[in-house]
Nucleic acid binder design. Structure first.
Length: 194
DNA sequence: ATGTCGATTTGCT
DNA sequence: GCAAATCGACATT
Protein backbone atom coordinates (compact mmCIF):
# COMPACT_ATOMS: atom_id res chain seq x y z
CA UNK A 1 0.00 0.00 0.00
CA UNK A 2 1.44 3.34 -1.12
CA UNK A 3 2.09 5.92 1.58
CA UNK A 4 0.26 9.23 1.14
CA UNK A 5 2.51 11.78 2.83
CA UNK A 6 1.66 15.47 2.56
CA UNK A 7 5.10 16.83 1.77
CA UNK A 8 3.75 20.39 1.62
CA UNK A 9 3.43 20.35 5.43
CA UNK A 10 6.14 21.95 7.61
CA UNK A 11 9.33 19.90 7.87
CA UNK A 12 8.89 18.92 11.52
CA UNK A 13 5.43 17.49 10.73
CA UNK A 14 6.68 15.56 7.72
CA UNK A 15 9.61 14.26 9.79
CA UNK A 16 7.13 12.76 12.26
CA UNK A 17 4.84 11.37 9.52
CA UNK A 18 7.75 9.55 7.89
CA UNK A 19 8.53 7.44 10.97
CA UNK A 20 7.33 3.91 10.27
CA UNK A 21 7.00 4.45 6.50
CA UNK A 22 8.92 2.00 4.29
CA UNK A 23 11.34 3.51 1.76
CA UNK A 24 12.60 1.39 -1.12
CA UNK A 25 14.99 2.32 -3.91
CA UNK A 26 14.95 -0.26 -6.70
CA UNK A 27 13.26 -2.55 -4.20
CA UNK A 28 16.00 -2.18 -1.58
CA UNK A 29 15.46 -0.49 1.77
CA UNK A 30 13.27 -0.73 4.85
CA UNK A 31 11.26 1.04 7.52
CA UNK A 32 12.23 4.60 8.42
CA UNK A 33 12.98 4.79 12.16
CA UNK A 34 14.82 8.12 12.51
CA UNK A 35 14.50 11.56 10.85
CA UNK A 36 15.50 15.19 11.39
CA UNK A 37 13.75 18.38 10.19
CA UNK A 38 15.41 21.50 8.77
CA UNK A 39 13.86 24.70 7.41
CA UNK A 40 15.03 28.03 6.11
CA UNK A 41 14.55 29.91 9.40
CA UNK A 42 16.92 27.42 11.03
CA UNK A 43 20.60 28.43 11.46
CA UNK A 44 21.60 24.75 11.24
CA UNK A 45 19.98 24.30 7.82
CA UNK A 46 21.87 24.33 4.53
CA UNK A 47 19.17 26.70 3.22
CA UNK A 48 19.53 29.31 5.99
CA UNK A 49 21.65 31.60 3.83
CA UNK A 50 19.53 31.14 0.71
CA UNK A 51 19.85 29.20 -2.50
CA UNK A 52 23.21 27.88 -3.72
CA UNK A 53 24.30 25.40 -6.38
CA UNK A 54 24.32 22.60 -3.81
CA UNK A 55 20.91 23.16 -2.26
CA UNK A 56 18.74 24.11 -5.27
CA UNK A 57 16.58 21.00 -5.00
CA UNK A 58 15.60 21.97 -1.46
CA UNK A 59 13.99 25.07 -2.97
CA UNK A 60 12.21 22.97 -5.58
CA UNK A 61 8.89 21.11 -5.37
CA UNK A 62 8.01 19.16 -2.21
CA UNK A 63 8.12 15.37 -2.36
CA UNK A 64 11.42 15.37 -4.23
CA UNK A 65 14.89 14.33 -3.09
CA UNK A 66 17.74 16.54 -1.86
CA UNK A 67 21.02 14.62 -1.88
CA UNK A 68 24.26 16.25 -0.70
CA UNK A 69 27.78 15.22 0.14
CA UNK A 70 28.67 15.38 3.80
CA UNK A 71 32.22 15.91 5.05
CA UNK A 72 33.37 15.49 1.48
CA UNK A 73 32.69 11.75 1.30
CA UNK A 74 29.28 10.56 2.53
CA UNK A 75 25.97 11.03 0.75
CA UNK A 76 22.96 12.16 2.77
CA UNK A 77 19.32 11.89 1.69
CA UNK A 78 16.50 14.36 2.38
CA UNK A 79 12.87 14.74 1.36
CA UNK A 80 11.93 18.30 0.32
CA UNK A 81 8.96 19.82 2.22
CA UNK A 82 6.55 22.79 2.14
CA UNK A 83 5.75 24.60 -1.08
CA UNK A 84 8.50 25.16 -3.62
CA UNK A 85 10.77 28.00 -2.58
CA UNK A 86 10.75 27.41 1.18
CA UNK A 87 14.04 25.55 1.48
CA UNK A 88 12.76 23.01 3.99
CA UNK A 89 13.38 19.30 4.21
CA UNK A 90 13.73 16.15 6.28
CA UNK A 91 17.02 14.26 6.68
CA UNK A 92 16.62 10.47 6.84
CA UNK A 93 18.95 9.26 9.57
CA UNK A 94 18.14 5.56 10.06
CA UNK A 95 16.19 2.69 8.52
CA UNK A 96 15.32 -0.77 9.75
CA UNK A 97 16.53 -3.04 6.91
CA UNK A 98 13.69 -5.18 5.51
CA UNK A 99 14.12 -5.48 1.71
CA UNK A 100 17.23 -6.49 -0.24
CA UNK A 101 19.33 -7.05 2.85
CA UNK A 102 21.99 -9.02 0.94
CA UNK A 103 22.35 -6.17 -1.57
CA UNK A 104 22.83 -3.70 1.28
CA UNK A 105 25.36 -5.95 3.01
CA UNK A 106 27.36 -6.14 -0.21
CA UNK A 107 27.28 -2.36 -0.75
CA UNK A 108 28.36 -1.75 2.84
CA UNK A 109 30.89 -4.59 3.02
CA UNK A 110 29.37 -5.45 6.37
CA UNK A 111 27.56 -8.33 8.02
CA UNK A 112 25.99 -6.65 11.02
CA UNK A 113 22.31 -5.87 10.38
CA UNK A 114 22.18 -3.32 13.19
CA UNK A 115 24.72 -1.03 11.50
CA UNK A 116 23.58 -1.41 7.89
CA UNK A 117 21.43 1.76 7.85
CA UNK A 118 22.03 3.34 11.30
CA UNK A 119 23.15 6.85 10.32
CA UNK A 120 22.58 9.15 7.33
CA UNK A 121 25.79 8.21 5.52
CA UNK A 122 25.36 4.49 6.14
CA UNK A 123 21.76 4.55 5.01
CA UNK A 124 22.67 6.32 1.78
CA UNK A 125 25.44 3.81 1.04
CA UNK A 126 23.18 0.82 1.74
CA UNK A 127 20.42 2.11 -0.54
CA UNK A 128 22.83 3.08 -3.32
CA UNK A 129 21.99 6.80 -3.03
CA UNK A 130 24.18 9.33 -4.82
CA UNK A 131 23.89 12.62 -6.72
CA UNK A 132 21.97 10.98 -9.57
CA UNK A 133 18.90 10.97 -7.31
CA UNK A 134 19.18 14.64 -6.37
CA UNK A 135 15.98 16.46 -7.38
CA UNK A 136 14.12 13.29 -8.38
CA UNK A 137 10.45 12.80 -7.47
CA UNK A 138 9.83 10.34 -4.65
CA UNK A 139 6.57 9.20 -6.26
CA UNK A 140 8.34 7.74 -9.30
CA UNK A 141 10.82 4.91 -9.81
CA UNK A 142 13.28 4.02 -8.49
CA UNK A 143 11.55 5.28 -5.33
CA UNK A 144 8.72 3.54 -3.53
CA UNK A 145 7.10 4.74 -0.30
CA UNK A 146 4.86 2.23 1.51
CA UNK A 147 2.44 3.24 4.28
CA UNK A 148 3.18 1.93 7.73
CA UNK A 149 0.99 -0.85 9.06
CA UNK A 150 -2.16 0.09 10.91
CA UNK A 151 -1.86 0.58 14.64
CA UNK A 152 -0.24 2.92 17.09
CA UNK A 153 3.43 3.78 17.07
CA UNK A 154 5.22 6.02 19.56
CA UNK A 155 7.52 8.70 18.21
CA UNK A 156 10.32 10.09 20.37
CA UNK A 157 11.75 13.59 19.89
CA UNK A 158 15.09 15.10 20.84
CA UNK A 159 17.85 17.46 19.75
CA UNK A 160 19.48 16.94 16.37
CA UNK A 161 22.88 15.33 15.91
CA UNK A 162 26.13 16.61 14.45
CA UNK A 163 25.26 20.32 14.35
CA UNK A 164 26.59 23.25 16.36
CA UNK A 165 23.82 25.82 15.80
CA UNK A 166 20.24 25.66 17.12
CA UNK A 167 21.35 22.61 19.09
CA UNK A 168 18.33 22.82 21.40
CA UNK A 169 15.65 22.65 18.71
CA UNK A 170 14.03 19.21 19.28
CA UNK A 171 13.64 18.30 15.64
CA UNK A 172 15.04 14.76 15.71
CA UNK A 173 12.35 12.05 15.60
CA UNK A 174 12.64 8.33 16.25
CA UNK A 175 10.55 5.20 16.55
CA UNK A 176 10.31 4.20 20.18
CA UNK A 177 11.85 0.84 20.95
CA UNK A 178 13.66 0.43 17.62
CA UNK A 179 17.10 -1.14 17.85
CA UNK A 180 18.06 0.37 14.48
CA UNK A 181 18.42 4.01 15.59
CA UNK A 182 21.77 5.72 14.97
CA UNK A 183 21.73 6.67 18.67
CA UNK A 184 19.38 6.40 21.62
CA UNK A 185 17.10 9.18 22.81
CA UNK A 186 18.01 10.71 26.17
CA UNK A 187 14.36 10.79 27.28
CA UNK A 188 14.14 7.05 26.85
CA UNK A 189 16.50 5.16 29.14
CA UNK A 190 16.92 1.58 28.07
CA UNK A 191 17.43 2.47 24.43
CA UNK A 192 20.91 1.83 23.16
CA UNK A 193 23.43 4.65 22.80
CA UNK A 194 25.01 3.07 19.76
C1' DA B 1 34.10 1.95 26.52
C1' DT B 2 35.97 6.36 25.02
C1' DG B 3 39.08 9.39 22.32
C1' DT B 4 41.30 11.25 18.32
C1' DC B 5 42.15 11.40 13.64
C1' DG B 6 41.87 11.24 8.56
C1' DA B 7 39.15 11.24 4.25
C1' DT B 8 37.80 15.38 1.18
C1' DT B 9 33.31 18.65 -1.15
C1' DT B 10 31.10 22.75 -0.36
C1' DG B 11 30.24 27.38 1.02
C1' DC B 12 31.61 30.82 4.02
C1' DT B 13 24.87 31.48 7.11
C1' DG C 1 41.56 29.22 5.60
C1' DC C 2 38.21 26.59 7.83
C1' DA C 3 34.01 24.27 9.53
C1' DA C 4 30.72 20.93 8.26
C1' DA C 5 23.35 17.52 8.93
C1' DT C 6 29.77 11.54 9.10
C1' DC C 7 32.06 7.21 9.49
C1' DG C 8 35.56 3.88 10.37
C1' DA C 9 40.26 2.85 11.94
C1' DC C 10 43.13 2.68 15.46
C1' DA C 11 44.77 3.98 20.12
C1' DT C 12 44.33 4.02 24.89
C1' DT C 13 41.57 3.20 29.60
Amino acid sequence: MLASIDFSAPAHEVARLLIGVTLLIDGVGGRIVETEAYDQTDPASHTYAGQTARNVSMFGPPGHAYVYRSYGLHWCFNTVCREAGHGAGVLLRAIEPTHGIETMRARRGLQELKLLCAGPGRLAQALGIDSRLNGQSLSEPPFELLAREAGEIEVLTGPRIGISKAVDVPWRFGLRGSRFLSRGFAAEPGTQQR
